[in-house]
Design a protein around this nucleic acid. Sequence first.
DNA 1: CGGCCGATCCACT
DNA 2: GTGGATCGGCCGA
Length: 198
Amino acid sequence: MKLNLLFYTREDVVQISRELLGKTLCTNINGNITEAVIVETEAYAGVTDKASHSYGGRRTKRTEVMYYQGGHAYIYLCYGMYSLFNVVTNIENVPHAVLIRGAVALNGIQTMLERTNRKKLTDGLLIGPGKLSKALGLHFSLTGISLLGNTVWIEDRGMSVSSENIVATPRIGVDYAAEDALLPYRFVAKQDFSVFTD
DNA sequence: CGGCCGATCCACT
DNA sequence: GTGGATCGGCCGA
């Protein structure tokens, strides 16, 4: 079933990041449906987190979406060519988010291959936030869209990941965040979901 | 208005 | 392991 508002508006973004592992990220872009099991996430803990775009309460046209109520998508352009997809959490005006860094393809594989200009499905197709967003059609122009609608949403299909199958590490590419760069806010599922593919 | 740079990826060595 | 691609956002002047 589709994750609801109560899932997203909880206050512990680290806990939500862990729970998102094993959930199914779905998109329906112009009738092209793609689905993938989330296997890698990162928590961004808002105004007190130096790695977060909303650190210190920074509020700009781009980061405004982070201040939305939980259950929206914050998607922004990185390095001029990659859209990075985040799940906004917590209540309105508390700018927490979870970056979705990796997934395993489940359905709509042909569409994903076409979007990424590949011929064959490989394990790494959706590993990496830029690649994942491209394959699922999560262009940054979709930023701010609700995850409770019928374009982008996340489902619980009973595939939760137990804590002994979760590895926590520091986040990627946030060396600028001083001591917060060391926080173990990246979560990787050590579990093989590829067996569910088609 | 100019300049710098990023929550990345891949080809190439 | 390294550097180039590529551009919107952000900041300082």
